[in-house]
């Protein structure tokens, strides 16, 4: 095991996969000479050269489409969006081109591409830079959506994404880049579509992904101090969703809170709750509750921003409600 930051774990995944497969290249704004806006691509230009680490103009729609075209003829592009907020300019290529190509060509033309970059709110970046879009992409058949919450999962999932034959939307946690964690040495792959129990417990299930893994674990610590044993289920992959792991946990605890950074309406948690009510209705001892971002554009003011975000205290409160303790 090595102690790595989430950022360096992603960097290691890129370096390893580019070393293993000449078809893999990295393209995006500031990925090469600047070493990455968030330094995820640090050192890659030096190691692989400008042929495989390609700086682009600020033209998300254009370079996303160039990546899709290269993938259609057999390369394995990794397209970095400086943030997923800017990727909205490219969503036509992700949704109308990448996700549809295999189907509308009758299976002839695949699109093995990874679109990656940071998502979610950081600190006081206000409305246009503080958004979670995983539910948007998870809505689309033909896409896979990955949201790692730890350095080990970041590395293992990115390596799996690059090797995958389908288009992958890979949303990193902007607030996680400096988080350190143990990462297995050597070849470390995390399977797409598998959730992970980050903490075992028998009293209540906390379903989370990306940055809210940290939120849920902190909440679980606080609950433990009050004698409540929470199980933390990290979805890791939003689509295809590992509902089996969620349902098994709910079958054990009979109570569930779903936590996410994004907005509640038509959010990831809505899908989780739908799966639970259809497949585990009789297991539930309380309605499933959700902790989400507030249903407003993100404010700038620090106090207001704090109020808008999902945090451990809100999760603790929700957990107590499903346990009828509050």
């Amino acid at each position: 095991m090595a102690l790595l930051t989430y950022r360096d774990a992603l960097n290691a995944a890129l370096r390893e996969e580019m070393g293993l497969d000449d078809r893999v290249f990295l393209m995006g704004e500031e990925v090469a000479e600047y070493d990455g806006a968030y330094k995820v691509s640090r050192g890659l230009l030096k190691e692989f050269g400008p042929h495989r680490v390609v700086d682009t103009p600020i033209a998300e729609l254009g370079f996303a489409g160039i990546g899709v075209g290269a993938a259609m003829v057999g390369l394995r592009p990794v397209i970095e969006f400086m943030t997923w907020n800017f990727a909205l300019l490219a969503i036509d290529q992700v949704v109308n081109s990448a996700a549809k190509m295999r189907y509308m060509s009758g299976g002839q033309v695949g699109c093995p591409i990874v679109f990656r970059g940071p998502g979610g709110a950081a600190l006081q970046l206000a409305a246009q830079h503080s958004q979670s879009f995983e539910s948007w992409y998870a809505h689309i058949p033909g896409l896979k959506v990955l949201t790692p919450g730890t350095p080990a999962d970041a590395k293992g999932l990115l390596k799996s994404a690059i090797r995958d034959d389908d288009p992958v939307v890979f949303i990193e946690g902007e607030m996680l880049y400096n988080v350190k964690g143990e990462v297995p040495e050597g070849e470390h792959l995390v399977p797409i579509g598998k959730a992970d129990i980050k903490r075992a417990g028998g009293d209540v299930t906390l379903v989370c992904h990306s940055k809210t893994v940290t939120v849920a674990l902190k909440a679980a610590d606080q609950l433990a101090a009050e004698g409540i044993d929470a199980e933390v289920v990290d979805l890791r992959t939003i689509r295809p969703m590992d509902t089996e792991t969620v349902l098994n946990s709910v079958g054990k605890t009979h109570r569930c809170v779903v936590v996410e950074e994004g907005w509640a309406f038509a959010g990831v948690g809505a899908q989780v709750v739908d799966e639970i009510q259809r497949h585990a209705f009789d297991e539930l001892d309380a309605p499933v509750l959700r902790v989400t971002g507030a249903d407003v554009p993100m404010p700038y003011n620090k106090q207001l921003e704090r109020a808008a975000k999902a945090d451990p205290a809100k999760v603790v409160a929700a957990a107590k409600r499903v346990l009828y303790l509050a």
């Binding site: 729609l61 254009g62 370079f63 996303a64 489409g65 160039i66 990546g67 899709v68 075209g69 290269a70 993938a71 259609m72 003829v73 057999g74 390369l75 592009p77 036509d92 290529q93 109308n96 081109s97 190509m101 509308m104 060509s105 033309v109």
Partner: peptide, 22 residues
């Protein structure tokens, strides 16, 4: 022959991507 594409202009970058691959 890599497609008729239905969104006006959507296939223009795709073609550049194929040229990039070449």
């Amino acid at each position: 022959f890599l497609g008729g594409h239905g969104i006006v202009g959507g296939h223009i970058p795709l073609t550049a991507g194929m040229a990039f691959a070449a």
